[in-house]
Design a protein around this nucleic acid. Structure first.
Lengths: 137, 137
DNA sequence: TTCTTGACTTGGACATTGTCCAATGTAGGA
DNA sequence: TCCTACATTGGACAATGTCCAAGTCAAGAA
């Protein structure tokens, strides 16, 4: 994670306590917090951090390509720090748990030219849905 | 579309002017309106229709499996009446235009067992992103 | 080390999208 | 035609996110 901070500083990012805490909260695998969750976790370490700063910082991390924004349920966006390894998401339909997964093959190549309507297609997101072991009961 | 109304009536759906108008607005191909857009279009025919009724009716149509809820941008949900033919979505990254598309192959089969973490995977949504011909300039 | 400055943070107002509820209206069967 | 359970309404409220003016501070300069 400190690599991340160094990398961003090299890009002219001013390193503040707030940004450091947000980056720390986002460290780990299978992390998919909402902005409010990030704010709550960040506030445990830096109680006076504001919501606006968390939103700003998350937006910057997304713009810089260090974090991916994921919308799995039409409610709050979630932030996924696993931005440097292409992956898709598997979501529990009941409890909302999210796992990063790696399908075989390239979903992009599954869209035939005549189904592209002249679009320059550059990305694809796949969301698998089902019940996790705990919710399958 | 009248088939839809008949079908729903057979399932005990009370047929009101409001529901009829919402169903009519959703008739067509490549239709992906937000709830507010549906409300505005419905109000052209039935000016006194309320937002709450539009939300209620859309929710019922989704529950009944007649309309699919689509979230392509983390903002307003969109409603797709093309629920009886499996399809995916192609979205313009600039203007937001949405087309229904039909990839070859079954994306579900691209997720190996060891990538399922014990989930009972039952559905998959694919969103292709790129620039439409008008926005590619 | 201290100074300076432009970038960063803050809190609160505001916007958008969606949900809920009590009062009122009405579709469709008896 | 009448009943009544179901549907509609408008407005309050909730959740999520954006914006802004004022105050604060990181990091380079001296």
């Amino acid at each position: 994670m400190s690599d991340l901070l160094e990398r961003l500083r090299g890009r002219g990012w001013r390193l503040t306590a707030q940004r450091r805490v947000v980056a720390e909260v986002l460290d780990g695998d299978h992390v998919h917090y909402t902005a409010d969750e990030v704010h709550a976790l960040a506030a445990e370490r830096l109680p006076e951090i504001s919501r606006a700063t968390v939103y700003n910082t998350l937006g910057e991390l997304v713009t810089l390509g260090e974090v991916i924004e994921v919308t799995t349920d039409g409610r709050a966006k979630r932030y996924d720090p696993n931005a440097h390894h292409a992956h898709q998401h598997l979501v529990c339909a009941r409890c909302g748990t999210i796992r990063d997964v790696h399908p075989s093959g390239d979903p992009l190549s599954d869209l035939p030219a005549q189904e592209r309507y002249g679009f320059a297609v550059s990305a694809v997101e796949v969301t698998y849905r089902g019940l996790c072991p705990d919710c399958a009961t």
